[in-house]
């Protein structure tokens, strides 16, 4: 079994300009992965399947992962010139202040592929791909034409995460019903207000019942 570095070198030799990045796994499992650029992913995947040394003919597992927008608060030291009155005389004084700055790291949806070889009996080789954002640019190439086992799993990710797989032959929701709107596996998914009557509500059920009642009253007053 080749290491990730060797696989990366083999991919770059076979598919020029593939843009493969190594993502290290800090945990004890040490299953490192390769991040593919979506533009060249199909060529790389075809190479991995057909290469005689690797022969990764078994796409075992396709996983969707949601990485929401992260707000990072950083403390930055800022030096600026301030007008100050020192001993009755106005002066320009330099002052260093610590400021808390917030920046938003944009999130994305990630798809992880675990590949094994049935012919050579080795693995796993882990591939990852990321969408540009989580709202409107969520397209990734579909692997179904290379490994048929991606068929239902990509449909599941489309259903639960909202990744649109370009080139998938039959991209429909798999587990939720067709009329369903949201993507339930996303981290910011809000459950619908589907409180059901209970004869003696208590604790969190009571809290939910009261909240539900307030919503109904508010809606009733509007009408």
């Amino acid at each position: 079994m080749k290491t990730v570095e060797e696989i990366k070198a083999a991919i770059e030799a076979a598919v020029p300009g593939a843009g493969v990045e190594i993502v290290l796994n800090p945990g004890p499992a040490a299953q490192h992965s390769l991040r593919l650029a979506p533009e060249s992913a199909l060529a790389v995947a075809t190479f991995l399947r057909d290469d005689a040394d690797l022969a990764l003919d078994h796409l075992s597992n396709v996983t969707g992962v949601d990485w929401p927008d992260k707000e990072i608060a950083e403390k930055v030291k800022v030096t600026r010139t301030v007008a100050k009155t020192v001993d009755g005389v106005e002066q320009q004084v330099e002052e260093t202040v610590e400021e808390t700055r917030k920046r938003v790291e944009p999130g994305c949806l990630e798809v992880v592929y675990h590949l094994f070889s049935v012919a050579k009996k080795h693995g796993p080789v882990v591939l990852r791909m990321r969408t540009e954002n989580r709202s409107d640019r969520v397209e990734l190439p579909s692997m179904t034409h290379i490994w048929r086992s991606a068929d239902f799993q990509e449909r599941e990710i489309f259903d639960l995460y909202g990744v649109v797989f370009k080139g998938h032959p039959d991209l429909r929701r798999l587990l939720m019903w067709d009329e369903f709107k949201d993507h339930p596996m996303r981290k910011d998914y809000v459950e619908p207000d589907d409180y059901e009557y209970e004869p003696t509500p208590h604790d969190h059920v009571l809290a939910r019942a009261q909240e539900h009642q307030k919503k109904i009253e508010a809606a009733g007053n509007k009408e």
């Binding site: 800090p26 004890p28 499992a29 299953q31 597992n61 675990h114 796993p124």
Partner: peptide, 8 residues
């Protein structure tokens, strides 16, 4: 609490 990382 396992350390950050992943495993299959």
């Amino acid at each position: 609490r396992p350390k950050p990382g992943e495993a299959y």
